[in-house]
Design a protein around this nucleic acid. Sequence first.
DNA 1: ATAAACCCTGACATTAATGTCAGGGTCAAG
DNA 2: CTTGACCCTGACATTAATGTCAGGGTTTAT
Lengths: 116, 116
Amino acid sequence: MKIGELSSMTGVSIRSLRYYEEQGLLTSVRMDNGYREFSPLAEEQVRTIQFYLSLGLTTEQIASFLTCVLKNKEAFCEEVLPIFEQKLKEIDGQLLLLSQIKTNLQDRIRSIQEER
Amino acid sequence: MKIGELSSMTGVSIRSLRYYEEQGLLTSVRMDNGYREFSPLAEEQVRTIQFYLSLGLTTEQIASFLTCVLKNKEAFCEEVLPIFEQKLKEIDGQLLLLSQIKTNLQDRIRSIQEER
DNA sequence: ATAAACCCTGACATTAATGTCAGGGTCAAG
DNA sequence: CTTGACCCTGACATTAATGTCAGGGTTTAT
């Protein structure tokens, strides 16, 4: 299928699909006219990419295990676990920071409201 | 005082001090030689700026109430409350998103570990 | 008077995925 | 054969605070 079809089937912009290909997340063959031709499997693949992106992984991280994950269960791909664990640590750090800021903001808001 | 002094007193880079001035957060007068001269009050002011930055506010938001806040209590500055409340909403949104991702990651990590 | 340590401005780089535009081919239907 | 709907590449823009470099003036101490 052509890139426009893949785009409308997945809801992912053509620009992003080209970017995924550039980053090695997606492959296509070129037709005589230079157009990209994607396999039907690409749809599933794009959804998988989007899913991992929604977990906050980078294209580079996704690229490191995508091929394996598309063929096997996640548990089968050695790369996956360390990346998930690292991401989890990052998120815990962010959660901590954000809660501290939240508490601080709430305190200040409260004290402003009391003072009025 | 000169910018280098202000920088070492506050731990904020010269580059950032110039940026704060550019964004209207900080003022200085120019000496005959073109050097910036800061008032002694600038030290406190820089710390205040850094504090609000650490809450995740932008220089633009800070600029909108900094002058008032430097002279009065926060409760006195009308601008402050809506900005704090908006930021709080933002943070709640981020917290929610991050916790969802965290849960998802934890589930996946667990299921990988079980499968090994 | 020279060297070290300041200061100045202006500009480009950083991050990461995506939007958007320009300039130009290709294809299909009328 | 023309028009509209595709496709291509390449490039710049986005965000926000900060780092860094170049090229050049100033001050201070020796």
